[in-house]
Nucleic acid binder design. Structure first.
Lengths: 239, 239
DNA sequence: AAGTTTGCTTAGAGCCATTAAGGAAACATA
DNA sequence: TATGTTTCCTTAATGGCTCTAAGCAAACTT
């Protein structure tokens, strides 16, 4: 399909990627604040205003970075998933979680970027922006596998009637967004597991655990073991 | 003790506080990026360079904000704690956790600020900076109460020998920093509980849960119930 | 009453984002 | 091949930012 592009269009795509790479390089080697139009321009050997021919402004460049990071992260997760047989969604789920942390700690600035980017409240987002679509694609990897697990080998769920009414309502709403693949009570297990894993990861990459921990891996594996229990799958040590 | 200060020194303290207030106002009403020396100066009716007579620069002002936020948060937690009798550390622990979330969601920009401020790795911090001392004071509220609970009514702990060796080592090191008030196995319960509560809070304030939840309160209370179980204390509904 | 400290001012260097205007090269077309 | 158009990039300029330097005036000290 690249061959279908004209020479000019290919050049343009190259430059777009080069600019993104320069921006990422600045993020990783310096800081989020160092990702400026001018600094990026210097990095690729242009003047500042030239960058505006490729990205509409700083916000647009930032959004492109976010999109690229989400896609790369989701790619790492699906790759790890596909290394396990599709007949074992439990193992796949663990593989996905581990790949996610692996990407997060080997690309800490990028993961922090994703986490701390100013996320507007749900009611004022552009659901069709590439950024949002990439974020959805990322979320869906874990969701899809949990749904498959639920369908092939249902895990124990809490009694809906014993949950807080407000929570029940929210779970029903979320269940609907999965097209009913996960009923509300299964969504509860799914979401709380997700929150525990991602909450831990969030604290780790944001350096909020260094007051007590130098290596969070065993903590993550412990968390994973508990999540495995919740999902009714057997925990296996990482290879 | 305020009376012991000269008139000038009192004026100076007033201006320092006024500048901090203006900075906070900008943070809350605009964004973290809006907290600039010039904008703050405008807010208090000075020119930019005048602010440098009060704070050494933007970083210094930011650090002062962080310190003030930590102190206010710790204050809210101790106040809630002291509303419960000291003879019931379990109830106090719950009160502290709820006060922490309450402050976090009523002062969301400030809590995000604390969480996402670029925290340098543990090995390159100034342990005697006001910022660091305030952060310690905040952490200690929860720690002290857990230690008291442990001393008066020890909670169930995991077998140290069954923990990952690396984790064991880290727990021992952390236990030492508590002056031995919490042995390593109790520190494990303490730290994992902390991480679950704070991890959830982190995701909430960073808007990472809005894809599924509009009201995180029942989720937090569920989490608190599990934490209560871990600590062997009775969960009680919030008043 | 004179000297010192303090609190502010303006001026200025050097970043930054962004827009406007224009030149040169590449491409398309007559 | 000559002409027109699109594309890429430039410089210039506006205005915001951090921060330093120099200096004035009021307030304190002696």
């Amino acid at each position: 399909m690249a061959a279908q592009l004209t020479r000019r269009e290919r050049q343009r795509q190259n430059t777009l990627a080069e600019i993104r790479a320069a921006a990422r390089h600045l993020l990783v080697t310096q800081s989020p604040a160092a990702v400026t139009i001018n600094a990026v321009a210097r990095e690729v050997g242009m003047t500042g205003p030239a960058v505006y021919h490729y990205y509409a402004g700083l916000d647009d460049l930032h959004a492109a970075m976010t999109t690229a990071f989400f896609e790369e992260l989701a790619g790492a997760m699906t790759a790890a998933r596909d290394a396990c047989p599709a007949t074992q969604p439990g193992r796949r789920l663990l593989a996905i979680a581990r790949a996610m942390r692996q990407w997060a700690i080997t690309h800490r600035p990028e993961y922090c970027w994703l986490f701390t980017r100013p996320a507007p409240p749900a009611d004022q987002r552009r659901p069709d922006s590439p950024e949002h679509r990439a974020a959805l694609g990322f979320e869906r990897v874990w969701l899809e596998e949990a749904a498959t697990l639920w369908e092939t080998d249902p895990f124990p769920v809490p009694d809906l009637d014993e949950l807080d009414p407000s929570l029940r309502k929210q779970l029903r709403a979320y269940s609907a967004t999965t097209g009913g693949r996960l009923p509300p009570e299964a969504a509860h297990v799914f979401l709380t597991s997700w929150i525990r894993l991602d909450g831990l990861l969030c604290m780790e990459v944001l350096n909020q655990l260094s007051f007590a921990f130098t290596d969070v891996t065993p903590l993550f594996e412990e968390c994973l073991r508990e999540v495995a229990t919740k999902f009714g799958i057997s925990y296996e040590r990482p290879v």
